[in-house]
Design a protein around this nucleic acid. Structure first.
Length: 278
DNA sequence: ATCCAGAGAA
DNA sequence: TTCTCTGGAT
């Protein structure tokens, strides 16, 4: 059997026996799939699961999120991390609601024009919501290709994976698999490999290590945002006391964090008091 | 300690 | 191309 055929049957074989089930795989509502993809950007499925279910209780549809205040959106997002994603998701909801008649785009160009949607998310939405073929590459899928086709290589670029990804998808679709199922299967295969092998993603050119959290700027960001949840608004000096970041070096980090959050449009100043923008 | 269904700005 | 953004499960 040709290598690509072997790969495809291994991936689909595992999918039949150990394929995972998630709520965002049960729906075909493009908006719900879009929301799941925002939440899943650099965030594990186990952490997204409860948040995803709660989300639609609070924001049932695009319009509900478009109308929501940023304070409410951030509160619902709490625990997912990368809070700028929450802001971009709401802004995308506003554009979809105001300019696109409430419909999630079904082409790559229009998807990429939305804030918070890059190459991965655009193609994932096309695949999962609209069953449209395209090359989807993320960490689990890279693992699958690298483990199978580059067992010895130290650094594998996406460019090297592309022709294999094309051939494998073509082969899977020719065998009657849907685009949607092919990519679910690929992700599940990658997750399976990581449980039984040394993470093949480490040999991807796209792999980067997480920098330390303790003493970092993002630690100060997190502390600042948590403080503003309970305070609503407060001067930075008060937040410093509240978070225990009042030593000169810590206070400096807090200032930098506030500066960045204001620049990102998440927070603003009311006189000298920090608060969420509306 | 590791790393996650990446995106956007510098 | 490189850097930064999160925090919780394992």
């Amino acid at each position: 059997m040709p290598p690509v055929d072997e790969f495809v049957s291994a991936v689909l074989g595992l999918y039949r026996s150990e394929g995972r089930s998630f709520p965002w795989r049960e729906t075909r509502d493009p908006w719900r799939i879009l929301v799941s993809e925002f939440m899943l950007q650099q965030t594990q499925t186990v952490r997204v699961l409860p948040k995803y279910l709660d989300w639609f209780v609070q924001f049932p549809d695009v319009q509900a999120l478009a109308d929501a205040s940023l304070a409410d959106v951030y509160a619902a997002w709490k625990g997912l991390g990368y809070n700028s994603r929450a802001l971009r998701l709401r802004d995308s909801a506003r554009i979809i609601s105001n300019d696109l008649a409430g419909t999630v785009p079904d082409n790559e160009t229009a998807l990429l024009a939305l804030p918070g949607i890059g190459p991965y998310t655009a193609r994932a939405v096309l695949a999962f919501a609209y069953n449209k073929p395209g090359i989807v590459l993320e960490t689990n899928i890279r693992s699958a290709y690298i483990f199978h086709f580059f067992p010895q290589a130290a650094k594998v670029s996406d460019r090297e994976l592309l022709p294999l990804a094309q051939a494998a998808m073509h082969q899977a679709l020719a065998g009657g698999c849907t685009v949607r199922d092919w990519y679910y299967a690929l992700m599940d295969y990658g997750v399976f490999l990581k449980k039984h092998e040394t993470n093949p993603t480490r040999r991807s050119a796209a792999y980067t290590r997480q920098s330390r959290f303790e003493g970092s700027l993002r630690q100060a960001r997190g502390a600042l945002l948590r403080a503003l949840e309970s305070q609503r608004s407060a001067p930075l000096s008060e937040i410093a006391q509240h978070t225990g970041l009042s030593e000169p070096a810590d206070y400096h980090r807090l200032q930098k964090a506030a500066e960045a959050l204001v620049a990102e449009g998440l927070l603003c100043y009311d006189q000298d008091r920090l608060r969420f923008v509306d």
